[in-house]
Amino acid sequence: MIEADGLEKRYGEFIAVDNISFVVNEGEVFGFLGPNGAGKTTAMKMIQCVSPKNKGKLEVFGMDVSTDQRKIKRLLGVVPQESNLDPDFSVYQNLLVYSRYFDIPQKKAENIIDELLDFVMLKEKKDTLITLLSGGMRRRLLLARALVNNPRLLVLDEPTVGLDPQARHLIWEKIKKLQSLGNTIVLTTHYLEEAERLCDRLVIMDNGKILVEGKPSELIREYIGTEIVEADNNPAVLDCLNKTSSKFEVVGDTIQVYTDDPQAVMNALLKECDFGKVIVRRATLEDVFLKFTGRKLRD
């Protein structure tokens, strides 16, 4: 569906996307994760054919993004990071005007729009102006708009940013539903729980590079282990852990021990060390993410 090889994007001296390669297969949900400024949105914009690449290969549906923009864009649905719904129009008109850009005849468009408004549960808001919609409704409308042309590939740039849990779960449900209908979906997100739930495969990016690629569950198992034991950070515990062969990391005033066998780690700590409080929790994608991108704050 998408094939990138040695893809690069520069803004003057700054390299936004630095020699990345990835393949997105038909029918999967593929995630781009990374801190702010990692190059996720830039990568999305190149896939959408709105930002030209500087180097490397990028093909969508087997077509080159530099020469076949119009054909690619016809088969693409895009939910942008920032709402660009048309504030001059109502909900219904937004979709109708948008369908025109895809040469969809008005009669057919009207049927599609009715279905889509049902799908995103905005039927009652049909004649409401965009400015009067809540954040969640706008996102749902953006999703409906992206589906107007019955796309083969959906590009979602942070589809749930700034939404309350109810609205977020609804979007997740819709994404799952779309996948089950055979859509291929590429998304970026900051929410690792979201990525873990939705993505079949994902990449973690930082400073324009892909750091790691894989299935969420496999990444967790491979780089972290299934569980994490957290203990208070004190010299005795550190000393004790150094004697064992455990993988661990010091994070502020806690120590995180990565393991597949939390019971053994617990026993070892109980037996040999003078520890404060100990917590066992499931390892998450967030642990993988922080391991690869570090804990330094990004702007």
Binding site: V50, R74, P80, E82, Y98
Partner: peptide, 14 residues
């Protein structure tokens, strides 16, 4: 402000 052009260039229009 309205990002109308951004929205339109995501469609087949240039």
């Amino acid at each position: 402000y309205q990002k109308t052009f951004d929205a339109i260039i995501a469609t087949p229009l240039s």
